[in-house]
Design a binder for these strands. Structure first.
Length: 215
DNA sequence: ACATTAAGTGATT
DNA sequence: AATCACTTAATGT
């Protein structure tokens, strides 16, 4: 369960918001913190607050038709959730679920203030617009990756990024895990990996693989 | 040695 | 490219 602690507005918010707005945040918002794995907002719940994330990461997901969790995006420190601003501003129940990916702190602003703040504070308005625009751009990127890149190209990119991230040519993931992250199926990934192995780009082992050539 | 789980494969849509 | 049904190989107990 979230617990209260002292208001502590981070620099980045303090810089981008005007004094009047900051004062109102201090007065009307509360500072909450959650532990890794906590559910911040569940599907079907009504949105009551807009979170301004101070630290940590929130994972925003929805459930697909079979009840599996589908990742939508992450909210990082100094950001807020675009979905909150759009679908949830008019008291609709949430279509999404927010869980704490890591321990996180956020400032909870009651949504009842949103309308007035948008017209009263230009900096708030631009903050809202910016977070929506950023998310929208991300969606566009995701869409053209899906539309214009073939799966084998996506896989190659994915593997390169993984090895870059870990600083190693060895990647400790099963085909199944890779498939899940790429929203594909295990068999398809296995076949593509096999092809890359035949082309001397990879070595395949159980639960790990090694990059030995240029992808 | 046996059960379990990951990976490989052909056929079907 | 996904899914199914099945085989084969690796790994844990």
């Amino acid at each position: 369960m979230p617990y209260l602690h002292a208001m502590d507005l981070p620099e980045t918010f303090a810089q981008s918001f005007e004094p009047g707005l900051l004062a109102e945040i201090e007065a009307k918002a509360v500072n909450l913190s959650v532990k890794e794995g906590d559910t911040v907002l569940d599907i079907g719940q009504t949105i009551r607050v807009v979170p301004l994330l101070v630290s940590g990461t929130l994972k925003i997901s929805r459930l697909d038709d079979t009840g599996k969790e589908l990742l939508l995006y992450y909210v990082n420190a100094n950001e807020s959730c675009a979905m909150t601003f759009t679908c949830c501003m008019q008291q609709y129940p949430s279509e999404i679920k927010a869980t704490a990916e890591t321990d996180a702190e956020y400032i909870a602003v009651p949504i009842s203030l949103m309308d007035q703040w948008i017209s009263k504070y230009p900096t708030w308005k631009s903050f809202v617009m910016r977070t929506i625009r950023n998310r929208f751009n991300e969606l566009l990127k995701a869409i053209d990756q899906l539309a214009f890149q073939k799966l084998d190209e996506r896989l190659a990119r994915y593997l390169k990024e993984k090895s870059k991230a870990t600083g190693s040519a060895l990647i400790n993931l099963s085909h199944e895990e890779i498939a899940a992250e790429m929203a594909s199926s295990r068999e398809v990934i296995s076949r593509l990996l096999k092809k890359l192995e035949n082309d001397k780009k990879l070595l395949l082992y159980r639960h790990q693989l090694k990059i030995i050539g240029d992808l």
